[in-house]
Amino acid sequence: MRAVIVEDLALLREGIVALLRENGVDVVAQAEDGPGLERIVAGHKPDLAIVDVRLPPTFTDEGLRAAIEARRRHPGLGVLVLSQYVEPVYTAELLSCGEAGVGYLLKERVGEVRAFIDAVQRVAGGGTALDREVVAELMRARQAGGDAGGALGSLTPREREVLELMAEGRSNAAVARALVVSAGAVEKHVRNIFAKLDLPASDDDHRRVLAVLAYLRAGAG
């Protein structure tokens, strides 16, 4: 897998590059600012771009806008946005440019090496990776705004955990690993969740994730 990284802090950039290389990700180029992203993506045609939200010169949401623009110009490019904070508006904007191959993670998740590499591979492969803080925010908004009939409230705590992990973008197998239960148990929970939330059943991991995300985002306004 070929990846590029845009991060203005050398300390972090170099650490992430080392981490990725250790785990078999080929980092083909690095940049430090928004325009740099477009340059290296156009030049190297990578599978994935890892982008910090806050970049020079404005140090605002430069990276986010650059990432969205890059996705618009290069369909099929996976974009994983790293940030030091969760901003639901930004998440929503990122997801609005298509859920396939996007991710939004807090920076500190790079410390959870396995999960991070898993998310990187998922996004590069057209999947989704949302930080659990983002998912929690979506759940909160869904419950505050439009949890019609209290569907979310009717989930058991375990089903809720499964739902949250699915919303992060994980496959059934990954959910089973994270919860240390059998794949069959996860299957059963997923069926229950889909029945309770009145979502169309599907065998495809990614479609399930999209259905869950669509459900949560519908209530988030």
């Binding site: 802090l9 300390l11 972090l12 650490g15 992430i16 080392a18 981490l19 250790e22 030091q84 920076k107 500190e108 790079v110 410390g111 959870e112 090496v113 396995r114 991070f116």
Partner: peptide
């Protein structure tokens, strides 16, 4: 501080591996 802590957490993650 935040960036350093992220870096720290990252190195600790790698060490853990």
């Amino acid at each position: 501080a935040q960036a350093r802590l992220v870096a720290l957490s990252m190195h600790l993650g790698r060490a853990e591996e």
